[in-house]
Amino acid sequence: MIINNLKLIREKKKISQSELAALLESSRQTINGIEKNKYNPSLQLALKIAYYLNTPLEDIFQWQ
């Protein structure tokens, strides 16, 4: 199971779900699903999230 700190990191950087979704060329619903652990992002999307949040991938997503 993958757990994530996306919501915590996103809020700390003062970025809304909609703003992050626009940067990622994704939907706000996708970001919401990832944050609620209802959806696991593809590797490509996970890497883009890490890039746009300027945060190491392993700080956002962790195996448990």
Rank of each mutant, 00 (worst) to 15 (best):
M1C: 13
M1I: 11
I2D: 04
I3N: 07
N4M: 06
N4D: 04
N4K: 01
N5W: 09
K7P: 03
K7H: 08
K7Y: 05
K7T: 07
L8C: 15
I9C: 09
R10F: 08
E11D: 08
E11T: 12
K12R: 13
K13T: 06
K13H: 11
K13P: 00
K13C: 14
I15N: 01
S16C: 05
S16T: 13
S18T: 13
L20M: 05
L20P: 00
L20R: 00
L20H: 00
A21K: 02
A21D: 03
A21M: 03
A22F: 12
A22S: 12
A22V: 11
A22M: 12
A22W: 10
L23C: 11
L23D: 05
L24H: 00
L24Y: 00
L24I: 15
E25L: 10
E25C: 15
E25Y: 07
E25M: 11
E25V: 09
S26C: 15
S27W: 05
S27F: 05
T30V: 15
T30E: 09
I31N: 01
I31K: 01
I31P: 01
N32L: 09
N32C: 10
G33S: 15
G33H: 13
G33K: 15
I34V: 04
I34G: 01
E35H: 02
E35A: 02
E35Y: 03
K36A: 13
K36P: 02
N37C: 12
K38A: 11
K38Y: 13
Y39C: 13
N40M: 15
N40Q: 14
N40W: 13
L43I: 12
L43N: 04
L45I: 08
L45C: 09
A46D: 00
L47P: 00
K48C: 09
A50V: 04
A50F: 04
A50K: 01
A50N: 02
Y51C: 11
Y52F: 14
Y52R: 04
Y52T: 11
L53C: 03
L53W: 02
L53M: 05
N54F: 06
N54I: 06
N54Q: 13
L57H: 01
L57F: 06
L57I: 12
D59E: 14
D59G: 07
I60G: 00
F61Y: 01
F61G: 00
W63S: 03
W63T: 04
W63Y: 06
Q64S: 14
Q64T: 12
Q64A: 14
